[in-house]
Design a protein around this nucleic acid. Structure first.
Lengths: 119, 119
DNA sequence: TAAACGTATGAGCAGATGTTCATACGTTTA
DNA sequence: TAAACGTATGAACATCTGCTCATACGTTTA
């Protein structure tokens, strides 16, 4: 659909300024995409539970799996996504891989979410 | 899969406490589900753009659609989701429905997300 | 009151997503 | 070095999600 074909209400003289102002202040496409991708990562209860687990202490993969009563494979797939988003980091310790929270943003973002749903 | 069948590493004597502690401090299922559902709402760039639009001022549906260069129907479907999550509210003004941000949590949550991706 | 306008909504479809299964990889142990 | 262990990963599948299209609803206008 061409831009000029986008439907709009007939209040054009009243609202044209609103539309232009909104478009001007909108962040660029890449930033919006990255932001949505970040929140998408928080939008799955398995990943949320993994993050809650790591709030307490760093843990190896199998302990996370056991804590959440899920398979190692499922957890490993989700840890990959969390790591790609830089929400967690990891290091090897012998046969095990230890995962940990990357920074404090995670806690802050989740706390804000909790604030909202508790109203 | 039964709980007792969940696979786990053999470090059971070393890590059993970790697992139990993690399970005890985990929020209950409903809260985790609601939290994930909330972030899922932020996890779409169309909805993020709608929220950014409403940061500036309250707007009617067709102005949002025009600002984002999307159809009225697509916007209306997304507004429904945003309203169900209590992120936006609306009121009727003649033929138009005016949407607005429900509270300041929205801004805070998005700002935290922006902080994270800007590192 | 009939037509026009702004918005909401259900069905359908294509693409995205989360889990399972099988298996490969890297490290340690026997 | 072969086996065992802990973890990672690709394929397949079922489910979910966002958009389009058609149409219904509520309000205002002629």
């Amino acid at each position: 659909m061409a831009i000029s074909d986008v439907e709009h209400c007939d209040e054009i003289h009243r609202h044209a300024g609103v539309v232009l102002k909104t478009q001007r202040q909108m962040p660029d496409e890449d930033e919006l995409y990255d932001l949505a991708e970040l929140f998408k990562v928080f939008g799955d209860s398995t990943r949320i539970r993994i993050l809650f687990a790591l709030f307490e202490q760093e843990m190896c993969v199998c302990d996370i799996a056991e804590s959440l009563e899920m398979t190692q494979s499922a957890i490993s797939h989700q840890l990959r996504i969390l790591k790609q988003s830089k929400l967690v980091g990891n290091r090897r310790e012998g046969k095990q891989i230890i995962y940990f929270l990357a920074d404090d943003h995670v806690r802050t973002i989740i706390d804000q979410g909790l604030n909202h749903i508790e109203e």
